[in-house]
């Protein structure tokens, strides 16, 4: 993963649970099948209730109807992002739609772990609450080494917390790559 990532932001509220990210009715697709996997992109964020799709407007789809890819690179959340089930389909769906980074105040732990160990998304923790500062469609750029997020649309800069313990796994690209690099798994 490069040290800077730039793209558009999609803004959500607090307590975005895995049923909102990818509703249970779509879990019959097999993520290990390349053709079926694409559908997780199509249905990413399909469980968001009315008024909560892309804040502050609340009526902006993450992925256009009938399409597989999102125009958004960043997902911005508030507290407790990714709570609920252990389904790895959640970070996978966001990544499959094309997003690369989630920035939230804090995460439910299984979602966070799945982001990191599966190498799907970079889960950043914001120092301040961004849900009311960033608007859906704003152009953001995260500098992972510097721990900063620049909002090119609003002309603001925000801080994100250091990755800490999980940095070696993020840098490796997931737990398998990390374990191989550290001699825990044979090549």
């Amino acid at each position: 993963m490069g040290t800077t990532i730039r793209g558009k932001a999609y803004v959500l509220g607090d307590d975005i649970d895995t049923d909102q990210i990818i509703p249970a009715e779509f879990l019959s697709y097999n993520p290990s099948d390349p053709e079926e996997r694409k559908y997780f992109g199509m249905y990413a964020m399909a469980g968001l209730p009315k008024g909560q799709l892309g804040l502050p407007a609340g009526d902006v789809r993450f992925v256009p109807e009938g399409e597989f890819k999102s125009e958004y690179t960043f997902v911005i959340g508030g507290k407790n992002f990714g709570c609920g089930s252990s389904r790895e389909h959640a970070p996978l769906a966001i990544a499959e739609a094309g997003a690369q980074v989630v920035i939230a105040e804090f995460y439910a732990r299984i979602f966070y772990r799945n982001c990191v160990n599966g190498g799907y998304l970079l889960p950043c923790e914001s120092v301040e609450r961004l849900v009311e500062k960033v608007k859906t469609g704003d152009e953001l750029e995260v500098d992972i080494e510097a721990g900063t997020v620049t909002n090119h649309t609003q002309g603001e800069t925000y801080q994100v917390k250091p990755l800490g313990d999980i940095k070696p796994i993020v840098d490796a690209g997931g737990v398998f790559a990390y374990a191989k690099a550290n001699g825990m798994l044979s090549e």
């Binding site: 993520p31 252990s86 389904r87 790895e88 772990r113 799945n114 160990n117 599966g118 737990v175």
Partner: peptide
């Protein structure tokens, strides 16, 4: 855990 952790 998720699928990746389980597979590991």
């Amino acid at each position: 855990v998720g699928n990746t952790d389980a597979a590991f």
